[in-house]
Nucleic acid binder design. Structure first.
Lengths: 344, 344
DNA sequence: CTGTTAGCGCTTTCAG
DNA sequence: CTGAAAGCGCTAACAG
């Protein structure tokens, strides 16, 4: 069970290696390798004989050995916690795209600080990945250094505004999205707009959303008292708490713009508990357009960011780089959309 | 960029191998290997010298080569789609536990049919994992055969009632959970109890939940007209649709037991849209106790299944097997709990 | 405590 | 079209 590769295993037949398959097919191991990697280079008869043996005996190629000598087949990825953040969809997009192209996804997730992040990147690199897709990226200089020194293929799923990607980046401008939503709310007649964020420290994307919010207010001649901004954990409870804090600070608040649907949904529930009509007494806007947003009562006005698509595109971009495609854009902007529904 | 291991890379310094580190530290490669794997077997001075070089030059060990010759360090896992199902928490539990023990998680996710599932298992096995954790398991005989023949360490996260695990299993009895919730609802005085499930075909866990629901009704002398059971996709919209279908079939319906919180949340929204008081006009119960359940309005009565814990325990169980621990239980039941809140 | 040798399972390279 | 030899980067096993 714990025994290293090869050799007999417990009850069943021995796990066969390529050498053994070759022996049984009456060819050299190299021919088996070729039959698998490049069937055209082997005569139909030989190939058929090999395949027949493989079929019968159940050979599974050792990817470790294979990747060591030839093409790398792992895509390493580092993501924030999957819970409550829409990251799950991105991961789904990545795995789908990876498997379609014959790659495997090595996943590290967590709440990274600078040091843990560097450590995580090092462990990924140890597996000799064909490339890296980084999302939970706090951008320690050491990590950047590590990656650019090594000259790795890297796609960051990140803020794309005013950032110089290590290699390539896929994403939206969080500034633009938040700006657009804030402007949208102002255009709909809301005046006192609260802003709820999850802790933005060291997180470029969240910072950009806040700046976008502020800039939109400024551009339309509104003030942005910082008392109308709060930070809470990314849970529905956080959203409810934020609402409580904000209305305490400003009882005339019109609308709350939550930088995540999870928060917005929590805030909506809190309104229900208080018996406040949405959007009449207080309006709520979210960010992300998760599945529930369109089914919530009232349906949630939010920013749609196509997460699955982002994951898919990130892999696609990586594969193009690996294929040596020329003139690859360093930054791939993903479209977004203000989804105007009933909650605001 | 696409170049295989070793050798010079684009702009930066060459990526160093162990041999090169050894040379610079004035020792044999083996000594470097030992300094890393088992520091006590190297004299403090030598170790210090080696570490100093590694620190300075930035060595990252090639895990491919390392795993080939010695301990395997990959845990392969196959899971259902991460979206909307609480699986994300399980994956979080798995990654946390894996990384704490120095393993990496190789992830395959998807909507598997029998054939795709076998294929997925084969790809995981190709990486010579120390063990497998399987969750999206439709249990094709071929897949079972493959795994038991190979004598792999396997933990299934699955139904644990009346099932003979390939190797080990961690989970709850879905029968018991659904039975308990149904009995709870009957005890609270509900009489006409609808049941909403996601498509149960080929899914043991969902089938067991349905059987548990039926058995509880039977045991308490209720009938279970199959017209009170519906299957819908696992989305909030599915929950809303299910509600519409059920109340159409039986306008006197008391309560709907949804076999997933995602469905229950959708059903709750549909009640709000219709202006129906919960639980007065119609009660709703869920399954899973996801984050939002406790924050929903009204707070959701549901079955708490500790998903994160399940993921963590699955890895723990695997590690024990790998450590050669004797008398390991084949089945690890995870506790569950009926969480009684306001929605039912 | 340290080094040497051999080889994990596959594929590159070069020769038939 | 097929095969033999060599070696990817590391570590088990065995010296010293």
């Amino acid at each position: 069970m714990t025994k290293p590769p090869g050799g007999k295993t417990g009850n069943g037949r021995p796990r066969l290696g390529m050498k053994e398959i070759a022996r049984r097919a009456g060819v050299a191991p190299m021919t088996v390798s070729r039959a698998l990697a490049d069937p055209d280079k082997v005569s139909p008869q030989t190939r058929a004989r090999i395949m027949e043996v493989i079929e019968r005996e159940g050979f599974i190629r050792n990817q470790l050995a294979s990747s060591m000598r030839s093409r790398r087949r792992i895509v390493g990825t580092m993501v924030p916690p999957l819970i409550n953040s829409g990251i799950a969809e991105q991961v789904q997009g990545m795995t789908d795209a990876c498997h379609a192209a014959g790659y495997q996804l090595l996943l590290i997730q967590g709440n990274f600080d600078t040091e843990a992040e560097e450590q995580a990147i090092r462990s990924l690199l140890g597996w000799q990945p064909a490339g890296l897709i980084l999302q939970a990226f706090v951008q320690s200089p050491a990590a950047r250094q590590l990656l650019s020194d090594g000259d790795y293929a890297v796609v960051e799923i990140s803020e794309i505004r005013g950032r110089d990607p290590i290699d390539m980046a896929v994403g939206v401008s969080n500034f633009d999205t938040a700006y657009a939503m804030t402007a949208h709310l102002i255009d709909k007649g809301y005046r006192r707009i609260g802003f709820v964020s999850t802790p933005a420290h060291g997180n470029d994307r969240l910072q950009q959303r806040r700046i976008g919010y502020r800039q939109a207010l400024l551009d339309r001649g509104h003030a942005y008292p910082e008392s109308l901004e709060v930070e809470v954990p990314i849970t529905p409870l956080g959203g409810a708490d934020a609402l409580a804090m904000l209305v305490e600070r400003d009882s005339a608040l019109d609308v709350i713009f939550c930088s995540s649907d999870t928060l917005a949904i929590g805030a909506v529930q809190e309104c229900h508990r208080r018996g406040w009509a949405i959007p009449k007494r207080l309006a709520i806007a979210g960010y992300g357009d998760m599945d529930l947003a369109a089914q919530l009562f009232p349906r949630l006005t939010t920013v749609r960011v196509p997460r699955y698509e982002m994951g898919r595109r990130a892999v696609e971009q990586l594969l193009r780089r690996l294929a040596g495609e020329a003139d690859l854009p360093a930054v791939v902007p993903i479209g977004f959309e203000i989804v105007d529904r009933e909650s605001a």
